[in-house]
């Protein structure tokens, strides 16, 4: 019973953290129409940033600034912001494919550098020597994990409320205006490149926070945590939930993370031993099929964006997932 309960807490914590990242992506893709192919890099920037700033001194690599936890987490988010600003500034003025290619490239390069730069990140062995905040007082058992779940859940709620306010604010209308018709927005005196950059950096900071929380939970991060598959998982969560709809994005995260862990469990349990090394490939095919299948048959997701036309009549129409 305790075993099941602690597993549920563990599952919910990871799903909640991923849901925060999905919310960040939703601001970029769902609300602004920006293609971020490198979610893993911004997630990873937050993760590595938090652990390097908040960890205890380590021999052999950078880090151990032992900053108070909130500062470390904010620092991680700042690292993600800096990365996003650099990439966004170069690519957001160009044709949309450039952002897709450049962000995908960032993720490849980020993972590659973290794997090789031992002085910075501990290399392939990953980054250790981080103490989870308040661990001494509470201990590392179920109680701590339950408290941590409450902490990440409240951050998820805060992120959700922040984004809901943002999306219904004039700035949110501006984002949708640019997504739907850039020329029209420009003719009204808006600066699409600047607005896009703001949305891109904000979304990436949210991903960075998710990464920081993820690394805090495990008190460890390694290049294995920032592989491109993470980007695809988060994408699949958003497209299943429904791009443009924050509640859908959260539900999609829980649904897809459930499907991912369940399929991993089923494969490890029922697949023959000699087929075990292919379990990953099967899961990747499943993720790819979910992405392609959703785009073909239900591009608006399970919980479509509800666009409220602000003219009289208040008609709603499904989102043209663009």
């Amino acid at each position: 019973m305790i075993g099941l309960l602690s597993y549920l807490v563990f599952f919910a914590t990871v799903a909640t953290i991923l849901a925060i990242a999905v919310l960040g992506l939703n601001l970029q893709w769902g609300n602004t129409g920006l293609f971020n192919g490198g979610v893993a890099a911004f997630f990873g920037a937050g993760a590595y940033g938090t652990l390097i700033l908040g960890g205890t001194p380590q021999a052999g690599h950078l880090g151990g600034f032992a900053m108070p936890y909130p500062l470390a987490l904010l620092g991680g988010m700042a690292v993600a912001a800096a990365l996003a600003w650099g990439v966004g500034r170069l690519t957001l003025k160009l044709r949309h494919d450039y952002l897709a290619i450049a962000t995908f490239g960032v993720a490849v390069a980020f993972e590659n550098v973290m794997r090789n730069a031992e002085w910075l990140s501990g290399g392939a062995k990953g980054l250790r020597g981080f103490e989870r905040p308040l661990q001494e007082g509470i201990g590392s058992g179920l109680a701590y994990n339950a408290l941590y779940l409450a902490f990440v859940a409240s951050l998820l709620l805060l992120t959700y409320l922040f984004l809901e306010r943002l999306v219904s604010s004039p700035f949110g209308r501006l984002l949708r205006a640019i997504r739907e018709d850039e020329e029209a927005a420009r003719s009204l005196g808006k600066n699409p490149a600047k607005v896009r950059l703001t949305a891109f950096v904000t979304g990436s900071v949210i991903m960075g926070m998710a990464g920081g929380l993820y690394a805090t939970f495990y008190a460890f991060v390694s290049p294995q945590d920032v592989l491109p598959i993470l980007t695809f998982q988060i994408w699949a969560m958003l497209i299943v939930g429904g791009a443009g709809n924050n509640r859908g994005a959260i539900l999609g995260a829980f649904l897809m993370w459930g499907a991912w862990t369940a399929s991993g469990w089923a494969l490890s349990r029922h697949a023959p031993v000699e087929a075990q090394i292919y379990a990953g490939s099967i899961q990747y095919v499943l993720i790819g099929s979910v992405i392609v299948g959703m785009l073909l048959w239900r591009p608006q997701g399970l919980f479509p964006e509800r666009l409220v036309v602000s003219q009289s009549g208040g008609a709603t129409r499904p989102a043209p997932a663009k």
Binding site: W29, G33, F35, G37, H96, D97, A100, F232, W235, I239, S281, I282, Y284, V285, I287, G288, S289, V290, I291, V292, L295, L296, P299, A321, K322
Partner: peptide
Amino acid sequence: LSMVFASFGVALIVRN
């Protein structure tokens, strides 16, 4: 943009 997105899915399927 959905095509860019779909191409990631296709790549995952074909490769694996």
